[in-house]
Design a protein around this nucleic acid. Sequence first.
DNA 1: TGACGAGTCAAACGCTTGTTTAATACAGTC
DNA 2: GACTGTATTAAACAAGCGTTTGACTCGTCA
Lengths: 209, 209
Amino acid sequence: MVTGDQETRERVLNTAARLFAERGVERVTVRDICQQAHANVAAVNYHFGGKDGLYTAVMELAIGVMRSTTEAARDAGAGQSAEGRLRAYIATFVDRVTGSGRDTWIHHLLMRELADPTPALTLVVEQVLKPRMEYLCGTIAEIAGRLPDDAVVVRCALSVQSQFHALLWNQALPRIATGGDTTPASVAAIAEHITAFSLAGVRGFAQSR
Amino acid sequence: MVTGDQETRERVLNTAARLFAERGVERVTVRDICQQAHANVAAVNYHFGGKDGLYTAVMELAIGVMRSTTEAARDAGAGQSAEGRLRAYIATFVDRVTGSGRDTWIHHLLMRELADPTPALTLVVEQVLKPRMEYLCGTIAEIAGRLPDDAVVVRCALSVQSQFHALLWNQALPRIATGGDTTPASVAAIAEHITAFSLAGVRGFAQSR
DNA sequence: TGACGAGTCAAACGCTTGTTTAATACAGTC
DNA sequence: GACTGTATTAAACAAGCGTTTGACTCGTCA
C-alpha cells in the first residue's frame, strides 16, 4: 500500500474519531473507516481487536484532549480572583467547543456519550467530568461565599456547565436563534454572555459570612 | 393472537417510542419492538411502511406531546407577572423532564434528535423549539426591559432552556453530583434553583428604559 | 354462499455487518 | 540463507438486519 508518512494505526484511529463524532458509532461501519483511512478492513481487528476496541481507543484519545482542556481552562485563570477564574474557564470552553481550535469533534463525542452512554462513560466521568465539577465548585463556592460541597454550589456548577452544550446543537441552533456563527467576535460575545449570566446567577445565591 | 384491548398498531407504536428513547433508533431492532409488543415482525412494515416510517410516526407522536407541554408551561403562568410566568414555565419543564409525569421518554428522544439530527429535526424545530423560544424570549424581554429579538434576550433564553438538558444526563449525573433523586421535594428544589439562577442572570442584563 | 379487503402469521429473502482466514511481503537476527 | 515476528491484503465467513412473500383467518356485504 502506498501509505503516507502516517502509520496505518494512527490513520485509522484519527479517521474513526472524526466519523464517530460526526455520525455516531452505530452509523459508521468499519468499512467506511478503513476506506477513508486507506487501510484494509482487517486493520481494525488487527490493531484494535474489533470495532469496540477501536471506539475505546478513540475515547481514550478524546479523554486525553479533554483533560488538557480542563487544565487549559484552569491555567487560564491562574492567579486571578474567583470571578476572573470563572471568566477564563468559560472563555476557554466556549473557544474550544465552537471550534476555534481544531478539536470540536471531541465535544460531539462527549455529548453523544452523555445522551447515549456506553461503558466508556465511567472513564469520562472519573477523568473529565469530576475534575471539572470540582474546580468549578471551588470557584463558585468562593464567589457565593459558600462551601464547595453545598448543594446550591453544585447546582450552580451544573447550570454553568450545561450552557456549553447548547453550543453543540449545530443543526438546530441556526434555525431557532439568530447567530450561530463562529467568528472570533461572536465567540467572544457568547463567552461574555455566559460569564455575565452565570456570575449574576451565582451572586444571587451569595451568602454573607 | 391474544391481543389485549389495544390494537396492534398502537402497541407497536408505544413500544417503539419507549425503546427508541431508551436506546436510540440504531440500537433497537424491528424484532425487538415486535417481540415486546407481542406482534409479528411484518407488522412494522404493514402499518408503518418500514422502520423509518415507524420512527417518523413516533416523532409525530412525540411532537404532539411536546406541543402540549409548551402549552401547559404557558398556561401555568397565564395572567401572572413576567417573573411568575418564567417561574411557572421552568417548574412545568422540570416536572415533565424529571418524569413526575409519565412522558420522560419524549425528552430523551428530543435530546437524541439534537445530538444526532434526522430529517425529523425540521418538524421539531418548527413546531416545538421555535414556539418555545418565542414565548421564552417574550417573557425574558419583559423582565430585562428589552425587545424580544434583542440578541441579549435570545442568548438568555438559550441559557435558560439549556439548563433543562442537564437533567437528562441520567447515567452521568448521580456520579458527578449529589442528588439526582426525583422526589417531589428535590424536583421542586431544582426548579426553584433554575428559576432563581435564571432570574438573576436575566436581571443582570436589565436595561433601564 | 361466495367474494373481498384488512390483518396477522411463519418462513424466507437479500443484503450488510463485524470478524476471521490464509497467503504474502518485509525487516531484523542468528 | 533460513527463521521469526509484524504488518498488510483479498477473500470468505457467519450472524444479524430490514424487508418481502404467500398462505391463512376473520368480519362484512352483495
